[in-house]
Amino acid sequence: MTRYTWRTGILEVLMLVVALVFAFPFYILINLAIRKENDQGSPLVPTFAPTIENFVNAWNQASLGGAIVNSLMVSVLSVVVIVFVSAMASYPLVRLTSRLSKTAYWVIMVGLLLPFQVALIPLYTTIRDIGLLGTTWSLVLFYAGLQVPFSVFLYTGFLRALPAEYEEAAWVDGAGPLTTFWRIVFPMMRPVTGTVIILNAIFVWNDFLTPLLYLSGSGSQTIPVALFSFVGEYQSNWPIVFAGLIIGIAPILIVYFLLQKTVIQGFSGGLKG
């Protein structure tokens, strides 16, 4: 376990082979995206004369710039709200013993199961009535509510494993609940906050159906919807389509690579319950 033996070597080789199998779709995606449009060769053959032309064309034709800005705005705002409300909510839900607190916890957990298809249409009419339709705010509001159960689930799992001694000390020192929470508890939950940020950012960035309905007709789009209509237009031109797809997923992939360490840490905290 602690030394690199010949067995470890075999495992290493084996894992690299498995990784190759997993990498196959990525290989196809990139290989075609850097290929010249008129290259009729097999998609399996590596592209030796790469070009960035497809990326330029895709960028110009799919108007991805505006969509990326929209997606960024929606993702950042939603995640901020989600983290803020879910972290705060998890505190009393874990630390309070009252019946009301337990009930509230389970009511929120039921949300993990609800298929949002039921809520989609009635909510649409409400969003329209409060005048948010066609704005990115409607999406922020939607995601903030939709992702509460999952985020509270992660936060409460993590918080249960945190010993309460530090907070008790603060209580004894006469700090109020808000101070205790934001000064002491929230910083201690940093790993799981990382997980909550990444998983929600991925979800919000990738969601397709909601922006399709809520932004439709407003002229603004998010990345998945922009990609969908872009692919519809350029169907058989795979190099340019794949270049567009890569542009669309690049921002979220970059965020993931930057924050990847905390994903594992956050989960591991939550599993100590």
């Binding site: 339709l133 066609g134 309905l213 439709s216 007709g217």
Partner: peptide, 25 residues
């Protein structure tokens, strides 16, 4: 004039919802 376009099926889904909500083009 603002024009928005959507893929056939998306368009059909959207136009229904928009008409019934009073937000159609």
């Amino acid at each position: 004039v603002t024009a928005t376009y959507a893929d056939n099926q998306q368009y059909q889904a959207a136009i229904r919802t928009q008409l019934s909500s009073g937000t159609a083009p």
